[in-house]
Design a protein around this nucleic acid. Structure first.
Lengths: 155, 155
DNA sequence: TATTGTTATACTCTATAACTATA
DNA sequence: TATAGTTATAGAGTATAACAATA
C-alpha cells in the first residue's frame, strides 16, 4: 500500500488547505519584497482607506501592533495616514499610488497562483467552493465578534 | 441590497477560509499558552520524532529559525533533541510526555473548533471536502519541492 | 569537500501597559 | 470620563551569513 494517500477528514482538510494558502502568501510576499503581514495589510486597503481601529480588528491585531505595521509600510512609501474629517481622533490608513500598484500586483499574483491549484478541480466542484465557504463562514464571528463574511475585501 | 453577501470567487474563497483557520489556530494556541508556530511544531511531532532539517522544510523555515523555535519549546520542557543513531550529524526533535499531552490537546481543540463550522455544511458537501482538498493538493509541491500531500501529520 | 545543525546579527511581528489627543 | 491611536518594552519569529561537527 506504499504511496497511498490517506483520506482526509474534513477538519484536517481545512488545515492542510490553509497551510498551502499561507505558503502561497509567503512566497508571493517575498517576490514583492513584503512580509506576509504587510501583504495582508495592503490587500485590505485596495478598496479604500480604513480607520486604524477597524483595521486592527480585521487583521486580528492589537492597535499597538497595527501601529508598528503601518509605520513600516509608511516608511517605504506604500501607505499613508489620513485624518478623518468628522472625528479628529480617527486616522485612516490609505494606499499611496505606489502602494496601490504593489497591492494589486500582489493580490493578482496570489489569485494566479491559487488558480493553478484550482485548475485540477472539475468545474462543477470548483463552482461549489464559493458556496461551501460562504456556508461555513456565515453565522460565525471571530473572537472579537466580527463576522467572517461581510465587508472585508480579502485577500 | 444592503446585507447581501457577494458571491466568492474560488481563489478568494480559499483565502477567506485560510484566514479563519489561522484565527482558530491563534485562539487555540493562546488558550494553551503557545504561539501559533509552537502549536504547529508540536502538531508535526505527534506521530514521532522528526530530524531538524526535515522539520525546517516541512514548516517552511530556515534551519536557523527552527533551531530557535525548538530552543524555546525545549526550554519549556515540551520537546527534546535526540541524536540519530546512524548519522551523528542529525538531531531529531521529539515530544516529551508533557509535550505529547499538550500537542494532542491542542490538536483536538483545533479539530473541535473547526467542526463547529463544519456542522453548518450539509453532510454530502462536508463529505466532498476531503476529496476536493486531496485533488487540489495532489500533484503540487511547495517551493522547496516537497509534496503537499504525503507524510505530514497536520495540523 | 559536502551536509547538518548552531550561533550571531538584524529586523519584523505581537502583546501589555502607560501615555497623548480628541470627543 | 471614554475612545482612538501611539510609544515603550519585552519576547517571539524569520532571514542571512559565518561557524562547528560529522560524513
Amino acid at each position: 500500500m506504499t504511496g497511498m494517500i490517506e483520506p482526509l477528514q474534513p477538519a484536517e482538510a481545512l488545515v492542510r488547505l490553509s497551510h498551502m494558502v499561507q505558503h502561497v502568501f509567503a512566497d508571493v510576499s517575498r517576490d514583492h519584497g513584503l512580509t506576509p503581514q504587510q501583504t495582508q495589510l495592503l490587500c485590505r486597503l485596495v478598496r479604500g482607506p480604513v480607520p486604524m481601529g477597524t483595521l486592527a480588528t480585521a487583521l486580528h491585531l492589537e492597535r499597538s501592533g497595527l501601529s508598528g505595521l503601518v509605520d513600516r509600510v509608511e516608511r517605504r512609501g506604500l501607505v499613508e495616514r489620513v485624518r478623518d474629517p468628522h472625528d479628529r481622533r480617527i486616522w485612516h490608513a490609505a494606499l499611496t499610488p505606489p502602494g496601490q500598484t504593489t497591492a494589486e500586483a500582489a493580490h493578482q499574483a496570489i489569485v494566479t497562483r491559487l488558480d493553478t491549484f484550482l485548475l485540477d478541480l472539475a468545474p462543477d466542484l470548483r463552482a461549489l467552493l464559493g458556496p461551501i465557504v460562504t456556508t461555513l463562514l456565515t453565522a460565525h464571528t471571530n473572537s472579537t465578534g466580527v463576522p467572517w463574511l461581510l465587508p472585508a475585501p480579502t485577500p
